[in-house]
Design a protein around this nucleic acid. Structure first.
Lengths: 227, 227
DNA sequence: AGTTGATTGAAACGACCGTTTGAATCGCTC
DNA sequence: GAGCGATTCAAACGGTCGTTTCAATCAACT
């Protein structure tokens, strides 16, 4: 028996807003993000989406392909929601660095967007599957390259490419910690401090100041900087 | 029917080296670290351990308690293998920071030790379960407090406790990234650079230099520091 | 109205899961 | 060697999983 999913994704016909396929992708993304691939069940997904269990097989073939499609779907949605920042020519590199870090933290921690999309992508980063390489090439690598270029300009050629990459990873690692290990961070830091200081904006200030101080662009932290 | 596990852990009788209970804990730790709680099956664990499927129920009650015990077991093994560093009085704070970072990276990335123990603990950090809080209190919080105290001494009181905590999290975040997202890092950085520079020792040099420069203890990176 | 192909529905399939059973086996004391 | 608790074993249980089946339904065109 021929199913529609063979060509439906190819021709990409305009689908209605409440397309069953989209409802399944939405429910699947949330379920996979929350429980992981194994623990999420297609029955729960279909119940949440309001479709029959046979629909996932009809539209996607099997669970594995549904998972890959939901990862790509969430990934594309995030790219649209929070695009790479762009600056007018002549904007100082230090300000672009701050904007970039704020952008990354907003995308990771931002409260305005559904959190399950980032959670789903985090799962791929932490335990890569087939969907990961595409995620890196389309999404992570351009961000990484942009960060390296900002740092390169900031240092005016004083650092080699490997050094720049390590500094870039240092910056990403700090943002990464708050997203991936946020629960543990919450156990180590007083709640009041979390509420007041661990916001995307405040954290961007800290990470940027930390980097600028390390690179010698601005005074060291202990000699009096931002709060 | 009474089972032995009710009091076996209480009296903690000296067990033989090839105790079935230990073999199960070893196989379970590896399986849970590799596949996660849901995807790991007790049948595979028992096959790997060379015991009957009923043994896990006999010794641990059920799968969930086996999981918690295996997490604690791996945790205790790691603590014994890589204890907190101790220094003679008067050792400079900068050197202690480097030792601390090297210690943490060695524990996270160290090739000399079985990697599944850290992977298992990483799963708890990233997606906490019942075993997590105990892990934090016994294992992570003391390390965190030590790091903060080193940074405090390094800054000679110029930074507040919240600031010190954020710097500490920045340092931990950098180490955390290489462990948790090592696969993605490997896609972003040339393999030769991974092999030569992303060793625990080299990374400790970088993270420490980055922190010391940011705090103004040593010159900024771009003005010429370590490689 | 009738035909056709796309979609939905309830039910079932086979497989595997965690767990339990009850008998067989072992190690030990008397 | 008989007795007995501790341990191991093969087998099965009930349940849930992903997937499939096939008839019912719908939408569009002749």
């Amino acid at each position: 028996m021929a199913t529609v999913h063979d060509h439906a994704s190819a021709v990409s016909a305009p689908r209605a807003a409440d397309d069953p396929r989209d409802r399944i992708l939405l429910a699947a993304g949330q379920a996979f993000a929350e429980h992981g691939y194994e623990a999420a069940t297609v029955r729960d997904i279909c119940l949440e989406a309001g479709v029959n269990v046979a629909a996932v097989n009809y539209y996607f073939g099997d669970k594995r392909r549904l998972y890959i499609e939901s990862v790509k779907h969430a990934h594309e949605a995030r790219v649209k929601q929070v695009p790479l920042p762009e600056w007018p020519a002549g904007k100082p590199a230090a300000e672009r660095l701050h904007d970039f870090v704020a952008n990354m933290l907003e995308r990771m921690l931002g409260l305005g967007q559904p959190p399950w999309q980032v959670r789903l992508m985090m799962r791929e980063v932490l335990h890569p599957t087939d969907a990961c390489r595409e995620l890196v090439e389309d999404y992570i690598r351009p961000h990484f390259a942009l960060l390296v270029s900002i740092l390169d300009e900031l240092c005016a050629g004083h650092l080699s490419q490997p050094e720049l990459r390590r500094v870039a990873l240092s910056i990403i690692g700090q943002c990464f910690l708050y997203r991936a290990a946020g629960d543990v961070v919450g156990m180590l830091v007083p709640q009041a401090e979390i509420d007041s200081l661990h916001t995307p904006g405040r954290l961007a200030d800290h990470v940027t100041a930390y980097a600028l101080a390390a690179l010698g662009v601005s005074p060291a932290l202990r000699q009096g900087g931002n709060t």
